[in-house]
């Protein structure tokens, strides 16, 4: 199992008041699955995303990522987990504006101590996989369109060959047409065997995954197969 979450809770303390945001969630994600986690704002899906992404830690419960318990690691160990096992795709892309496309994609490998030549080879491969045209590789990332930027971000998530790709509202800053292209890219990556976790508040986006987990008020209220054939009739999947 790639993600094995058992009975995790998360509470925040503000002054004297403690608020529990997640109330004992348990679920698993198998290797090669494409899962969407969805729910209205305030449901706790962002908090869950941070825990899955090893950016934050649960207050209680255990989280095994690719067989490794990451629920109580110090900050620097979490950083190592993130660079070896997780590829992030963010809503607002988070590219270094003045750096070239290639440099942006290479960045995770820089922190992982991959030699220079190997970095470039893997970055080019990841960019091809994400579907960006080679003529753009040396462009500065702020010269790209939104869709192209998100492809660069996807390539950056792929480049360290992570256990999971964690996409947080990846279509939120894109028009619907470009958003569809990005979602199709995720579906293609899924067919190629990647494990993908997609966080979104949009039902339409969530239905592109194979499985949908719906969260409301910090508990899982639904965990089902998606209805993508129904949502997009006539579309070849």
């Amino acid at each position: 199992m790639m993600i094995d979450i058992r009975n995790i809770t998360k509470s925040y303390t503000m002054g004297k008041e403690t608020t529990e945001v997640l109330h004992g969630l348990t679920f698993g994600v198998e290797k090669g699955e494409f899962v969407a986690i969805t729910g209205p704002s305030g449901s706790g899906k962002s908090t869950l995303m941070h825990i899955i992404g090893a950016l934050d830690q649960p207050t209680s419960g255990t989280y095994l990522l690719d067989g490794e318990d990451v629920s109580a690691l110090p900050a620097d160990e979490l950083a190592k987990i993130r660079r070896s096992k997780i590829g992030f795709v963010f809503q607002s892309f988070h590219l270094l504006a003045r750096a070239t496309v290639l440099r942006n994609v290479e960045l995770p490998l820089v922190y992982a101590d991959v030699p220079h030549a190997e970095r470039e080879r893997r970055a080019r491969k990841a960019l091809e996989e994400a579907g960006l045209d080679e003529s753009r590789f040396m462009h500065q990332s702020n010269q790209l369109s939104g869709g192209q930027m998100q492809r660069v971000a996807i390539a950056r998530a792929l480049v360290n060959n992570p256990a999971i790709i964690l996409a947080d509202e990846p279509t939120g800053n894109l028009d619907s047409k470009t958003g569809d292209v990005v979602l199709e890219t995720f579906q293609r990556l899924h067919r190629e065997g990647r494990t993908i976790v997609l966080i979104t508040h949009e039902g339409y986006v969530a239905e592109h995954a194979d499985r949908v987990i719906v969260i409301r008020d910090g508990v899982i209220i639904e965990d089902r197969k998606s209805a993508k054939g129904y949502v997009k009739p006539g579309k070849k999947v």
Partner: peptide, 12 residues
């Protein structure tokens, strides 16, 4: 940018 660098694995 600092947030991104931390997210993709830069230690403190």
């Amino acid at each position: 940018e600092i947030g991104l660098r931390q997210a993709i694995g830069a230690e403190k």
